[in-house]
């Protein structure tokens, strides 16, 4: 068990910026995902082939999942949540490739994703509801709950980052430990578990992000409905 298996060490420095394997792996992933998306959507047809059908099914599944939680804001939220799912699934599964590590095994990556979710909740809330209306929901149902709201925002973001990081790192660590203790081919069932866990963790992360974003939007909707009832 080498040091690079436990820690993400910088590969080289580019001025003040340290480039780690996580960043390099992410760039490779981005290149593959971007190239694949470009190639797959170059010749879309009304009568789809298998690949187009698969991609349309995937996009439709993402869209329907978002529609089930935030039906009025599917168009705004869908690219962010969809990208989260795609990125985390592929990043999680990257760890199955020998000699590569999942970018989500790096706390910096999961923290970055959690930070993006945290920012996106406020971004979508302010963009759709306006700053004043959005900030008002922190005072609901009582201004006394404002600190709890803020603590909740912080803790759930940290939990989001640590949950994904802990699960993916523990998976890789378990597989590595079993490989060291039991030998070749024994960790294969653990690798199968890795696939399932990768998909489940991606789903959980994306779904929680969706719920957080939708929660911020629906607090405004609840307020509007309440105002409508009181006006009536």
């Amino acid at each position: 068990m080498g040091e690079d298996s436990l820690f993400i060490l910088p590969l080289f420095n580019l001025g003040p910026v340290q480039l780690t394997s996580t960043v390099i792996t992410t760039w490779v992933m981005m290149a593959i995902i971007g190239g694949f998306a470009w190639l797959a959507t170059r010749r879309l047809q009304m009568k789809p082939d298998r690949l187009q059908t698969l991609l349309e099914a995937m996009v439709s599944l993402i869209e329907e999942s978002i529609r089930g939680i935030a039906p009025q804001h599917v168009q705004q939220i869908m690219p962010f949540i969809g990208t989260l799912w795609v990125f985390i699934v592929i990043a999680n599964l990257t760890g199955l490739i020998p000699g590569m590590h999942s970018p989500t095994r790096d706390l910096s990556t999961t923290a970055a994703l959690a930070c993006l979710v945290f920012l996106s909740v406020h971004w979508f809330g302010i963009r759709i509801q306006g700053l004043k209306n959005y900030l008002q929901h922190y005072l609901q149902p009582s201004p006394i709950l404002l600190p709890f709201h803020i603590i909740s925002e912080m803790t759930r973001t940290i939990a989001l980052a640590v949950r994904l990081f802990g699960n993916m790192m523990s998976l890789e660590m378990v597989a590595l430990l079993i490989l060291l203790v039991a030998g070749f081919l024994v960790p294969v069932p653990i690798l199968m578990l890795h696939i399932v866990e990768a998909l489940v963790q991606a789903y959980i992360f994306g779904m929680l992000a969706l719920i957080y974003v939708a929660g911020g939007l629906q607090s405004q909707q609840r307020r509007q409905q309440k105002q409508g009832v009181s006006d009536a």
Binding site: I8, P16, V17, P103, S108
Partner: peptide, 9 residues
Amino acid sequence: LNWSTFVLE
């Protein structure tokens, strides 16, 4: 937490 990785990610 590597801040360079965090920002780059």
